[in-house]
Design a protein around this nucleic acid. Structure first.
Lengths: 225, 225
DNA sequence: AATTGTATCATTGTATACAAACGAATGGTG
DNA sequence: CACCATTCGTTTGTATACAATGATACAATT
């Protein structure tokens, strides 16, 4: 056993998955504007890959609802409206309410530690007003919390909305008021988790996500969406 | 204008979509058992198509969560557990609660008529105890009702669970007791819609879907799931 | 006998080639 | 000039060919 592949995470992913993630990112960040048509040959050339893996990536994006397929005309990037954002946050909130019971039921010391560790890093970022880092940790915090649940299918729905949420909640975090509120709420969430206070957690989480949605919708509206 | 293509619904769909639907059906009905590996060459040959469209169909099913992808080993059909079924019904119920306000807000005479027409056919099927037909109309009823909402993204989530729901709720409809309850509830739903009684409708719908889930879970458990 | 190395095979991953369909430009006809 | 048919180019749809990878069986070594 001289040299096996040491790190499974570095293992070469199929090109189609790289294309999938690349496209997803480009669409969510708006790099590829809504309404754009994605011409396979052009995009494949740009990525220096063939059309085959690109097309498979497009089929996945189609099921994600990020692109729309038109017979014999390929795909166009779907647009986000304010209503879309509203719905995305609403879905996530509802799903969160569904998994919280299992989160509280499953929570253990190790996972609480993981949350506390993230929280400490958030404290630092919050002190520095480092919004970028805060956004990253925010995602990690929520993701860790969510995945304490064993409701796989519900988690799948949440995950499918996650990309958008993080994209748009970054806008919410940019608000200094919302930022400090959210920070306090994250701390309170861990407290409630420790106490296994399901009802308190549900109420807090619902409020947290609702506030986040409102802040985000306002910010987007101001940006002329 | 001699002969254009007359019926858009008969328009030739891409093979990949045919493969997609065929596979989806086969998996949901259990024709391809859970845990089976789907070997591309074999399945493509069986459908008399090439691997390319089949692979694109598999990528869609992957995003649907119907198959699982394993690096360099292809896809295997995911298993349904009782917990899966529970979650699927739960998701659908929660999503339904979210769209009902917009359904009540948007309802108009034409759509109510459509519902009433379906209901009449259900009356006939119920009289004859024709479970097959009842299942078809049941799907049409719920689908029509749901699509009165303009919440596109939430509807997308509902639709993504719909196939399973119909597969499993067919089991529930097989119960004669549940069948008559459901029938009465469908009539009551239309009444409440007419009256635009949102709260009443929410309560009824929640109960309706919950009962359906319980009946289904019991039936499945008895079948040794 | 157990284990490890190696050859082979089955299967997936990707690229390319060709066919079919659509759309825009062209040209003829009333 | 308007209108329709035709042609051509672009782009998607599908098939096939080839490369890369992982699994398996078997032989060699201990």
């Amino acid at each position: 056993m001289s040299h096996m592949s040491f790190d499974a995470t570095l293992e070469s992913k199929p090109i189609r998955d790289i294309a999938y993630e690349s496209l997803k990112q480009a669409i969510i960040t708006g790099e590829i504007p809504a309404g754009s048509r994605i011409v396979e040959t052009a995009y494949a050339d740009q990525l220096h890959i063939s059309r085959t893996p690109l097309r498979e990536a497009l089929r996945k994006l189609e099921r994600d609802g990020l692109v729309e397929y038109i017979l014999h005309r390929g795909v166009v990037v779907r647009a986000f409206t304010l209503s879309d954002i509203d719905e995305i946050f609403t879905i996530r909130n509802a799903m969160m309410m569904l998994i919280l019971p299992s989160v509280v039921a499953n929570v253990n010391a190790k996972e609480l530690d993981a949350l506390r560790t993230i929280l400490k890093e958030m404290d630092v970022a919050q002190d520095k007003q480092d919004v970028e880092t805060l956004a990253v940790h925010n995602r990690a915090f929520h993701s860790t919390l969510e995945h304490m649940s064993d409701k796989k299918r519900i988690l799948r729905v949440i995950d499918s909305q996650e990309e958008y949420i993080m994209r748009f909640s970054a806008v919410a975090i940019a608000s200094i008021v919302r930022r400090s509120h959210a920070h306090l709420e994250h701390h309170k969430m861990v407290e409630l988790l420790e106490k296994k206070d399901l009802e308190g957690l549900k109420q807090l989480m619902h409020h947290h996500l609702e506030e986040s949605k409102e802040t985000c919708l306002n910010a987007m509206a101001n940006r002329g969406f």
